[in-house]
């Protein structure tokens, strides 16, 4: 599904990603752990093709196609979807309009919103006055409408209260086809800081990013437990990268 090869990325003239290699197969869910400022969000932004993230070296293959220099919207049309951590407020643009961009009918959009208990937000200007949890729900609802093949999630649990964590978890499961056990097609890459999301859905692989490099590939639950126990310093020392590649 996704193949990242030796990816070096500059942000405002500063080297942030330093040779990232990553492979996500069809139907797999991967977690990306790492401290703040380690480059996790930069990787997601680069995968989505946002301005300000300059690829200096390496390439990104999505479904076998080199998308390294493709405009964002073409990546979205190919099947990449991103949930924004802090999306901008768009004055005069309603959540219903955002859902309509995915070329689903008004009725279908209304049905989806009802399913997730969010129909009273359809007429709201998108992200205007939304709480942390409401932003996440709005983002995930847009993604469900968009129906991407690879979903990129940037800290989906941040700012969400306990009651809503469950709904957020269910929405992500829906996106990642967790109800399909054979022939699952949807893949995901989830940045998580707290690891809470692992209580709600099973991930296939975990990666640790430190200082713009991936230091470890492995079982996500084991990695997360190790980080909790020993901290990221242990990852820096251990460098499990070669064993699992």
């Amino acid at each position: 599904m996704l193949q990242v090869e030796d990816l070096w990325v500059d942000v405002q003239g500063r080297e942030v990603l330093k040779g990232i290699n990553l492979h996500i197969g069809q139907g797999e869910t991967h977690c990306l752990f790492g401290k703040n400022g380690s480059g996790k969000t930069t990787l997601l932004m680069t995968l989505m093709g946002f301005s300000g993230y300059t690829v200096k070296h390496g390439r990104i293959l999505f479904k076998g196609e080199d998308i390294t220099h493709l405009p964002t919207n073409e990546r979205a049309i190919l099947g990449l979807g991103l949930s924004f951590q802090r999306p901008p407020t768009l004055r005069g643009v309603k959540l219903a309009d955002m859902l309509a961009f995915s070329r689903i009918s008004r009725e279908e959009a209304a049905r989806l919103a009802r399913t997730w208990g969010f129909d009273h937000f359809l007429d709201r200007e998108v992200n205007l006055g939304f709480s942390g949890g409401e932003i996440k729900k709005s983002e995930l609802l847009q993604l469900i409408a968009q129906n991407p093949d690879l979903t990129l999630l940037d800290e989906p649990e941040s700012g969400v209260d306990i009651e809503n964590l469950h709904v957020i978890g269910e929405m992500i499961k829906k996106l990642l086809q967790k109800d399909v056990h054979k022939g699952r097609r949807k893949s995901g890459l989830i940045i998580t800081h707290t690891g809470f999301i692992l209580n709600y859905l099973a991930a296939d692989k975990g990666h640790v990013m430190l200082n713009g490099q991936i230091y470890c590939h492995g079982n996500p639950v084991e990695i997360f437990e190790a980080i909790q126990k020993y901290g990221y310093e242990e990852c820096a020392r251990c460098r499990n990268i070669h064993r699992t590649l």
Binding site: M48, F50, S51, G52, P71, T72, N73, A76, I77, G81, L82, F84, P87, P88, L90, M98, F101, S102, Q142, Q146
Partner: peptide, 16 residues
């Protein structure tokens, strides 16, 4: 117009 706003919509499949 903030670049961020344009790219938010582009990530949903709209052209620039």
């Amino acid at each position: 117009i903030a670049r961020e706003e344009i790219e938010y919509l582009m990530a949903r499949g709209l052209s620039e």
